[in-house]
């Protein structure tokens, strides 16, 4: 589904990704772990299409398309979803209206009629139950006045509504208490199928107790320096990153 080859990306003069390779197939869950400053958030930003990041080399093939050629909304229409580490507050734009607009813009892209009000409401009801999002929060302005946990649950709610093929969860566990973590993980696990894939970007192993990865990658200094199974995460939890980064140095 996703093939990232020799990806180099910079912000300003600073090169952050320095030849990153990763391949994700449908049905898989990949965890990308790494210490602070290793390039984890840059990877998610580049995949989602944030324009402050300049890709200087490499390519990203997504379902046979050159992903980097698409603008952020086109990537979304093609099934890429980014759950933000810091979901943005948008005063005055209601959660529900914005999702309806989003769904209809994608339907327009695929030359489909706008979603019927009844179907939309049914979908909202079903998907919000998945992450236990209350009616009050659904109708509020996007993320305004939401607690940390509510914001993350709202991200997964949006993910459920948009039914992506490739989801990238950027530090979704940060700022979550254990109950919220469980709810978020339950949402992600329920949405998992043989046709979609998930990249979980995280600093800690904790989230991976709930979302079990098929592969664990260690990102360090802009490159993947080690790939293993889920046991690698446990090893990292126990030994930290030093033993790997020293090896690298």
């Amino acid at each position: 589904m996703l093939k990232v080859k020799n990806l180099h990306a910079s912000v300003g003069d600073k090169e952050i990704l320095k030849g990153l390779n990763i391949e994700v197939k449908a049905g898989e869950v990949h965890a990308v772990m790494g210490p602070n400053g290793s390039g984890k958030s840059t990877l998610s930003a580049v995949l989602a299409g944030r324009d402050e990041y300049e890709v200087t080399a490499g390519e990203v093939d997504y379902l046979g398309k050159e992903l980097l050629e698409l603008n952020p909304e086109e990537r979304s229409w093609e099934g890429v979803f980014l759950a933000f580490q810091y979901p943005v507050e948008i005063p005055g734009v209601s959660n529900i209206n914005f999702l309806k607009t989003a769904i209809n813009e994608r339907r327009k892209y695929f030359e489909q009629d706008p979603i019927a009000a009844k179907d939309f409401l049914k979908m909202v009801k079903e998907k919000s139950a998945l992450v236990e999002l209350s009616d009050k929060l659904k109708n509020r302005s996007v993320n305004v006045g939401f607690s940390g946990g509510e914001k993350k649950r709202n991200e997964i709610f949006q993910m459920a509504m948009l039914e992506p093929k490739l989801s990238i969860l950027d530090e979704t566990d940060s700022g979550l208490d254990i109950d919220a973590l469980r709810i978020v993980a339950h949402g992600v696990n329920t949405l998992k199928s043989k046709d979609n894939a998930t990249i979980v970007i995280t600093h800690y192993q904790r989230l991976l107790d709930y979302i079990i990865p098929d592969f664990v990658h260690v990102l360090y200094d802009g490159r993947i320096i080690k790939t293993g199974g889920k046991e690698l995460a446990l090893e990292l939890e126990e030994k930290g990153y030093d033993w790997l980064t020293k090896e690298e140095a």
């Binding site: 989602a48 299409g49 944030r50 324009d51 603008n71 952020p72 909304e73 990537r75 979304s76 229409w77 979803f81 980014l82 933000f84 979901p87 943005v88 948008i90 005063p91 005055g92 734009v93 914005f98 999702l99 607009t101 989003a102 769904i103 813009e105 994608r106 892209y109 302005s141 996007v142 949006q158 948009l162």
Partner: peptide, 24 residues
């Protein structure tokens, strides 16, 4: 930030701006 967030949800840049102006 808000425009990018809306774009990643599949709202085109133009529509995102319109939504934000309306909200404002």
């Amino acid at each position: 930030e808000a425009i990018f967030y809306l774009q990643t949800r599949g709202i085109s840049k133009e529509s995102a701006k319109k939504l934000l102006i309306e909200a404002f």
